[in-house]
Structure formats: C-alpha cells, structure tokens
Computed example of a mutant assay.
Amino acid sequence: MAYAAWDHPEPLALGSAPLPEYGSGSLSDLLPTLAAGMAVPGMTAAITELTAADRNCVFLVDGLGWEQLRAHPDEAPFLASLLGSSRGGTGRPITAGYPATTATSLASVGTGLPPGAHGLPGYTVRDPATDQLMNQLRWQPWTDPAAWQPYPTVFQLAADAGVHAAQVSSPTFEHTPLTKVALSGGTFHGRLTGEERMDFAAEQLAAGDRSLVYTYYAELDGAGHRYGVDSDTWRGQLMHVDRLVQRLAEQLPPRSALYVTADHGMLDVPFDEQHRIDFDEDWELRAGVALLGGEGRARHVYAVPGAADDVLTCWREVLGEQFWVASRDEAIAAGWFGPPDRFDERVRGRIGDVVAAAHDDVLIIASEREPKESAMVGNHGSMTPVEQLVPLLEVRS
C-alpha cells in the first residue's frame, strides 16, 4: 500500500543528502593513493594522511560497515584495537560511494574511479543498447565487459609500472566479468578458505620489492543479508574476520602496510508494510514505470517514454520524507555518482530517469519480480552513514 502524499508534505531537499567524499576519502581514492606512494605514473595520493609503503595489501571484507564494527568491539578485539593508533596505524572511516553496493564499490576500488566514470552505478541498471535490466554483480544478461567498463584498473597500471600486483580470492571469482572489469591486473590466485588467503596474501606481498595485493572475504555480508547484522550468525562471522585480519597482520613482510576496508555497511529493516513498500502492489509507484532497477534502498526508476516528469512527481509525493528522490540530471549534477566533471556520458542512460535513495530504515521491495532480494533482513545501498561509512584500518610493519 502506498503512503498518501499528505503523510509526508515536505520531501527531503536533495542538498541534504550526505554526499560520499569523492576525491579525498572514498573507496575510489584508496588504490590510487597507495599506487602513488609506489611511484605508479598517473596516480594521485588523494587520502593525504596515508604514508607511502613499498608493499601494500588491501583486505576488503564484504559488508563490514564502520558503525557495525564500532558497535561490536567484544567480537572483534583486534579490529577494535586498530580504531586507534596503538599498533602503529590509524583507523578512520571513509565512504563507499553511491550506491553503497558490492558491484559498484568493487569497481570503484579496482579502477580508482567514481561510479559515474567506471559505469557500474547500481546493483541492476538498464542497458541502453537492449533496454533490459543488467545485474552487474552476476553479469546477467551478458554484455561485453571491455565495452561496459573500458578503463584500466589500478592493478593493471601498477603491473605495467613494474609493481608486483596480485589478487587472492575465492577461485569462483577468477574468470567472472566483474573481476575482469574491476580487479584484474597482475595475477589472480584462487584460495578456498580465509586462512589460505591470508597466508598467500602475505607471500604475495613478499614476492616483490614493490607489491600491491588485494584479498577478499564475502561471508560476513551473506550472514547480514540472511540473518541481520546483530544476529548470532553475523557476530560469529565477525569473530572469524577478526582472527583472519590478525593472522595476516602477524605475517606482514618488512616495509608493508595492510589496509582493512569494506564495500558498504548494512542495516536491518523490519518486515512490515510501513518499512517495506512493495512496488509490485503499489499502483501509484508503478504508474508510468517501464523498469525498476537498483535495489531496495537505492532505486533506479526507468519511465516509459514521455512519463519521466510524472514519475518523478509521483515518487516524490508518495515517498515523502523517507527518500531522497532526484531526476537523473539532478542526481548527476548533485554529485551522487561522483564529481560532475568526471562523469562519463556513456553512463547516463544506465542511470534511472528517477533515482531514489532511502533516508529512513525503509525499502522499496518488489515481492514478485525480486522475491529473494525482498526477503533479505540486512540491506544497504543508500547514502546514510550506516551504509556509506566503511573502515580504513591500517597495520604497518
């Protein structure tokens, strides 16, 4: 059931959306900063407080938000110790970028570009060439990866500059299009367990005088989606992540820096009509809409020809104060997808005619067309601190 417009008479001002810190403290700034410290041509050290190291490892824990980490120090004592400077490093939050979702964030990390440049601006987006929704995480339906994301990754640029570049992750990801467009360059090493990845990442760091190594752990995110970010299962996964980070930190070769970060935070959304607005049962929201993309907290809305203005007006009236609702041009100009002067025009048609980013703890689900996603406990995607802020924790040897 839709909310009546009079329940929310004053839509949120677009200027009140807390923009990601593109250019100074976002995921897209991390690898360029590290590569600049290793003298890779064309790279800029945007995160100015990071000190250059000869060997750098980024350990990305899927779903490990800054606020969730700070709320669970007992489950993650080693990580909690990195929030200060007691181990020779510093801990601070950086922002994921919009939307705060895995495919977008991994592309931002690997390319060093904001979403409006690399062109993966959501979980599902319209392919202008086919007018179909494309799932950028699963790469379905398939499209040419090099055409979809044509820029070189930081790993590729580093390898070309003589840096030993490597990714250590699950063997499942070795040949995926997302890995190709976001994280390729140097060598990929598949390892099944987290412990094996930590050990091999340390070996790869030591393999070069200058090294750039990436490793990844996904299961914390899965636990949050299925059971919630304060469930026993999620807490157990956090405890395991804490042990993995300590295991890697204790094996760092000389002149190394380890950075622990994440692709997004997460929040639990209650299962009721007030918090889960069902697009498939809401005639007002469906009116004039050809395709519904994105995800529950970060929607791309594609209008039928000629209906974009009416859809924008309706979504603003119906959603009221609970979402920031912008037109495509407004969202781009406001910098949601990165600085407007870095926006690549090939990406414009992938972004919704209307873009809706959740402010409150609500979702726009689609129970019929997205049954699995609509049933998730933990969710993410928008620009609120609980989703945007991810840790940047440092250990140096």
Rank of each mutant, 00 (worst) to 15 (best):
P32T: 06
V245Q: 01
D353S: 07
E373D: 12
P99T: 11
A103I: 05
I365G: 00
W142Y: 15
R299G: 10
H300M: 13
L14S: 01
D160Q: 15
V377F: 03
W66E: 09
A147V: 14
A207G: 05
G228T: 09
G89P: 09
M376Q: 12
M376H: 06
S397D: 12
M43R: 08
P77G: 01
R191P: 00
P177N: 05
G185C: 10
L252N: 12
D282H: 02
Y22G: 00
L50S: 00
S108T: 06
E250G: 04
D199E: 11
P9L: 13
W283N: 06
D353N: 09
P339C: 04
Q156A: 09
M1V: 01
A165K: 03
S105Y: 00
P115M: 04
G89N: 09
A146C: 08
P145A: 08
L60R: 00
E281T: 14
L258S: 09
D360K: 10
D199P: 01
M38R: 09
A303T: 02
L83P: 13
E373L: 13
V311A: 12
V289F: 10
T44S: 04
C314R: 14
V163A: 06
L292C: 13
A80T: 15
L312F: 15
F155L: 14
V301C: 06
V58I: 04
Q274C: 11
G112Q: 03
G208Q: 11
Y302V: 05
S397V: 10
G208L: 12
D360T: 14
F59Q: 02
T193F: 05
G88P: 03
G110A: 04
A129Y: 01
G112Y: 03
D263E: 02
S374P: 04
W148S: 05
G162C: 07
G89S: 10
A307W: 12
R243C: 02
A52T: 01
A100F: 08
R55A: 03
V269C: 08
A331M: 00
D282P: 05
P371W: 09
A201R: 03
Q149D: 07
Q156H: 02
E284H: 03
A331I: 01
W142V: 15
A249K: 13
S367G: 07
A96Q: 02
A331C: 01
F271W: 05
V386F: 03
L69P: 10
D7A: 13
P77M: 03
D344I: 07
T193Y: 06
Y216T: 11
R138T: 15
I364S: 03
T90A: 14
P73E: 11
G288Y: 08
R126E: 14
P99G: 06
P115E: 07
R226H: 15
D272I: 07
A71S: 14
R255I: 00
I332L: 07
R138Y: 14
A206P: 02
L30F: 05
Y214N: 04
E10L: 14
E67R: 13
L363R: 14
L212D: 01
E284S: 02
G63H: 08
Q388C: 06
D131W: 06
F337L: 13
F343Y: 15
L291C: 10
P73V: 13
V377P: 00
H189D: 10
Y217P: 00
P114F: 03
R369L: 12
A257K: 09
A375E: 08
